[in-house]
Design a protein around this nucleic acid. Sequence first.
RNA 1: CGGGGCGUGGCUCAGUCUGGUAGAGCACCGCGUUCGGGACGCGGGGGCCGGAGGUUCGAAUCCUCUCGCCCCGACCA
Length: 564
Amino acid sequence: MRFSKMLLPTLKETPADADVISQKLMMRAGMIRKVAAGIYNLLPLGLRVINKVEEIVRQEMNRAGAQEVSMPVVIPAELWQESGRWEQYGKELLRFRDRHDREFCLGPTHEEVITDMVRREVRSYRELPLNLYQIQTKFRDEIRPRFGLMRGREFTMKDAYSFHATDESADLEYQNMYETYKRIFERCGLAFKAVEADTGAIGGRFSHEFTVLAESGEDAIASCDTCSYAANVERAEVREADSKSTEAPKPFERVSSPGKKTIEEVSGYLKIAPQKLIKTLIYDTDKGLVAALVRGDYELNEIKLKNITDASWVKLAEEGQVREATGSPTGFAGPIGLKIPVYADNSIKYIVNGATGANEADAHLINVNPSRDFKATYADIRNAVNADLCPRCNGHLEIKRGIEVGHIFKLGTKYSEAMGATFLDEEGKERPIIMGCYGIGIGRTAAAAIEQNHDEFGIIWPKPLAPFGCEVVAVNIKDEETSKTAVAIYGALKDKGIDALLDDRDERAGVKFKDADLIGIPVRVTIGERNLKQGLVEIKERKSGQVKLVKVEEAVAEVGSLLS
RNA sequence: CGGGGCGUGGCUCAGUCUGGUAGAGCACCGCGUUCGGGACGCGGGGGCCGGAGGUUCGAAUCCUCUCGCCCCGACCA
């Protein structure tokens, strides 16, 4: 491709509304342009990268024995009503009506459609297992789209669904996909981690996230510094250190604490460390109001709370509900005397002479001792923090940020049962098909690659994702020798199967060099008059910045060896 | 949806508080000089100041309503 002919509008300035590096660089490099919030055009350079990612995914999925299909973006409501998600999914699901007033939605994921497809075609265990995937546009009406392709509302995703007659078969495929995902992200040149994760709205029994470590990541990952344990903090198990305090329990007493509501205020006013405060949060759930206790310096993990209470949703109670449960305004709740179920984080157990709300305005209790003064169900309901004990070994957890680029789930029979996707087993017995599902965010993977591979000048593409393998820069296109040599090398590269970009614009050298650094092609061949007089051209690697001069005739071979 | 902010040539922004009829840099077009790390000079084109209503002799500027976008919290590939 010739630069002069390509729609490749690079930007000298960073657009005001971009806030992560990948988004800024994608905009500046002329890869993407915003059409609406969370909705983007992919320009030629951007599409090239997306195609590279897709091709790697496609090859590896095929290699793993999966078959590619394509499902519609527009899905009739009935399918979602069958699975029960039409009601559950919430506003992320963009719903609309056609001219006949029939209800549809834009597919945010395709369990329903694929389950419908398979239940129509598969009758016997002989036709299983099956792994079907597609690379397709999804739409999720995100509350807050941001970070360019990293969290768009419309995005391309590879989603695969597997169908099995037995649990063992499903587990085998889960493992197969786990290995496949590792290969895919390795081939993309990414530093990633597979971590245990919560199953969320997709449902199912267990799952792993594939996370690219990056400062801008929206996920917090806890990983052990000695063993291989890694999990999303939403999921990370917390093991409390046994800390036997030598302090003697004192009788509890009520103290006045006018207007002191937050942990900092109470801690400061009563001169008690946050670690000795019992934070009491009132939650509304579909099972009624509950109280959740965590140590003052920890955060409650709502997912864990939801799991332990066996509720299908939990949310922080409103002011009125807090009054109803505690008889006091928010900020003064405590576990003593509550009539609702009390769930306490394991860390509470070790508090001696702690402080908590008195369930009356402007008062707290001090010298509270959990085992003596109130009853609670103890469980792990807090978020893991840095330096927590590893649940698997004697190491400690480190919290890092990451971008979730892939997720694999063992679904079980959630959808097959709801939608009647069954098969006949060897004994002629009808059974629900066991399912797994496996997603990869294509655009997000490309964005993650930039987050991990860039410098102050621009993108540094990992070779497998680079939109071109090599950029040929003709320093002065008006010089006949330069122009002839550049075109010849460019042609020879193409003949050799190397995708090349020829910067044949009539621009000053500086402009072309800046653009080359910005768009981040791995290898640059620079043809300038001075070197050319000695029969030499310059070859520069984007990543290392290493420059070497080679003979014109050797340039193509040198580029080839740098790219292999 | 709650809280905060912003909408002025293609892009980045000034002008808004203190109304007087729209600017800069970059980009774009022409000519000339320049030419290996985002050149310079001269000339030029381009803006219902997000939209609607109002106040006023006069509104980018003040008021009301609306739409869009961005940031901080509850979702996920």
